[in-house]
């Protein structure tokens, strides 16, 4: 079984995003960029499925600027087999990403597409579900456990009240949540080896997908700040204050 793993290049999760002074967006100039953490979990899960003998080949794909190559090389260094870069400098919305991925899935015929539940930049949480709809496949979102058996996969999902397990017919889409696994670091020899793994470069036009955005960002601002309050010296003082506010009787 082949696995398709879409990955996105985003601001590194340790960097605090700064809103541009003109309110046009978030400043990404000279900011450290990395693989979206949820996608890293997806790559790791794919590698584990290959190590278990469930999967035979892992194809990673990224839709983004030329520099998204670095993200793909990271995935190759972790253990993916080959990569596809759909190169564009335009911002591509989840719907268009899903359309491109649907075309790639039609070409590659994966048994499973594993991807992050959301990207930590736009926080949309849409691509996997949209891709499932476009392909008419089943979806296992927010996965904390993935078990493939025969022509189906059991996905344990992190839902509001706890955990839920669904059985999906293959091929299917799985989106990853935080507790699915802990991604490995790529070793130096593997980073070197990844440089010679195949990486194909395509464009959205190659897939006949119109990436014109449907949403226009009118403004981006800082969230309203919360003022720090007072520090109290004792539990009694805390209780007094709470009683004054009326939240406790």
């Amino acid at each position: 079984m082949k696995l398709l793993v879409p990955v996105k290049r985003v601001i590194d999760y340790n960097v605090k995003p700064r809103v541009k002074a003109d309110g046009s967006g978030v400043d990404l100039a000279n900011v450290k960029m990395s693989m979206n953490p949820f996608d890293e979990i997806a790559v790791e899960e794919a590698i584990r499925l290959k190590e278990k003998g469930v999967a035979t080949e892992i194809v990673v794909v990224s839709i983004g600027p030329a520099k998204a190559q670095e993200t793909l090389r990271t995935a190759l260094a972790m253990g993916a087999d080959r990569a596809i870069l759909v190169q564009t400098d335009d911002a591509v919305e989840p719907l268009a990403v899903a359309k491109i991925l649907a075309k790639i899935a039609a070409e590659e015929q994966p048994g499973l597409v594993v991807l992050g539940k959301q990207a930590i930049d736009d926080d949309s949480n849409q691509t996997g579900q949209m891709l499932a709809a476009l392909l008419g496949w089943a979806q296992g979102t927010f996965a904390s456990k993935v078990e493939v058996s025969g022509d189906s996969v059991d996905v344990t999902r992190e839902v509001d009240g706890g955990l839920e397990t669904v059985k999906l017919k293959l091929p299917a889409i799985v989106t990853t949540d935080l507790r699915l696994n802990e991604p490995r670091y790529a070793s130096l020899p593997n980073i070197m080896k990844a440089k010679s793994k195949p990486l194909a470069t395509k464009s959205p036009a190659d897939y006949g997908v119109d990436t014109t955005p449907r949403l226009t960002t009118l403004s981006v601002r800082e969230p309203s700040k919360r003022e720090a309050g007072v520090k109290v010296g004792s539990v009694d003082e805390l209780i007094d204050r709470l009683r004054t506010t009326g939240v406790i009787g």
């Binding site: 995003p17 978030v26 949309s124 949403l215 601002r221």
Partner: peptide, 29 residues
Amino acid sequence: MQISDVIDVVDADTFVRPIYAGNAIATVK
């Protein structure tokens, strides 16, 4: 194209939503 996690409705086409884990607030049309 869905608009996720809306925190305010400005008009029939315009919505406010947090991005970057709430570190920025975007108004989108």
